[in-house]
């Protein structure tokens, strides 16, 4: 039956293998030409503040580990990537392994050229093999759609694959903490597994529409000091202990950042 279907027009994708991460679509010139627009968006719309990029070593790869927020729109990811390219230059490659939902949007080609890759299970591993620095969000979809009243909580989940990637490739982990993304819509958690939010322009947004046009909440991003896993934990560290330590460090920073915010959205 499948064989018959494959002969019909438009069904050739049935026999395609699992899609690979888009590792070679990052386009430095494209990024460079978009930096002014992203700078305007970060400065004027989100009143952004990216601090601590100097903590990232000047040379070599790093694994940036962030807390995810902002629903589908995920403005903190784009702001961090633009800040990284402004700081180090577009010549230093950074790939972000993010969730599937933004890549389902019509402008996903734009995102892929910016260095955002499809989150296949081995995407981070393959991205590190290219020699690029990599940004991962272990909390993924669940953390990005957590209810707005839990905006001060870091939830990296149970997965430790990212710790193992850092160990395998001998790259330092650099925690990145973002505040304000969960105020770009009123996220209401999940109903029957689907994220729900009060958002523009839909009113009530469900699934991939939850948080589509972000409110102009003040976004703050803090890059913490790098963690050399072997130096801190020895040759054979327990990935779960590393994950918990990194999450605790990020939580302390996020708590302090949330305390400094006086009003939701306003910051």
């Amino acid at each position: 039956m499948i064989g018959l279907l494959r002969q019909l027009p438009g069904t050739s994708r049935l026999d395609r293998p699992e899609p690979r991460p888009d590792l070679d679509e990052r386009d430095p010139d494209f990024i460079r030409e978009r930096l002014p627009g992203l700078w305007l968006l970060s400065s004027l719309y989100f009143r952004g503040d990216v601090r601590g990029l100097g903590n990232i070593p000047d040379h070599g790869q790093v694994l940036l580990v962030g807390n995810h927020s902002g629903g589908v729109a995920t403005p903190d990811t784009v702001m961090l990537m633009a800040a990284f390219s402004s700081y180090f230059g577009v010549e230093r490659p950074l790939l972000a392994v993010t969730r599937t939902a933004p890549l389902a949007w019509p402008p996903s080609g734009w995102l892929r050229r910016f260095g955002i890759v499809r989150p296949t299970p081995d995407a981070a591993d393959l991205a590190l093999r290219t020699g690029a620095s990599v940004l991962v969000y272990p909390g993924g979809e669940r953390e990005a759609h957590r209810p707005s009243w839990r905006r001060g909580v870091v939830d990296l989940g149970d997965d430790t694959a990212w710790v193992q990637h850092a160990l395998r490739h001998r790259v330092p982990i650099v925690p990145v903490v973002a505040a304000g993304g969960q105020e770009t819509a009123l996220f209401l958690g999940r109903r029957r597994g689907m994220p729900v939010a009060l958002t523009l322009p839909w009113g009530i947004g469900v699934g991939a529409l939850a948080g589509t046009v972000p409110l102009p909440a003040k976004l703050t991003i803090e890059v913490l000091h790098p963690i050399d896993l072997v130096e801190r934990y020895g040759e054979d560290p327990d990935p779960e202990a590393v994950r918990d330590d990194v999450a605790a460090e990020m939580q302390r920073t996020l708590t302090a950042m949330q305390r400094a915010r006086r009003l939701p959205v306003v910051g």
Binding site: W39, S42, S43, F46, R47, G48, D49, V50, L53, G54, M79, A82, A83, S86, Y87, F88, G89
Partner: peptide
């Protein structure tokens, strides 16, 4: 060289 402009440090060689 890095110069602080708005939310980010903007750099050049």
């Amino acid at each position: 060289v890095l110069m602080r402009l708005g939310p980010v440090d903007v750099g050049s060689l």
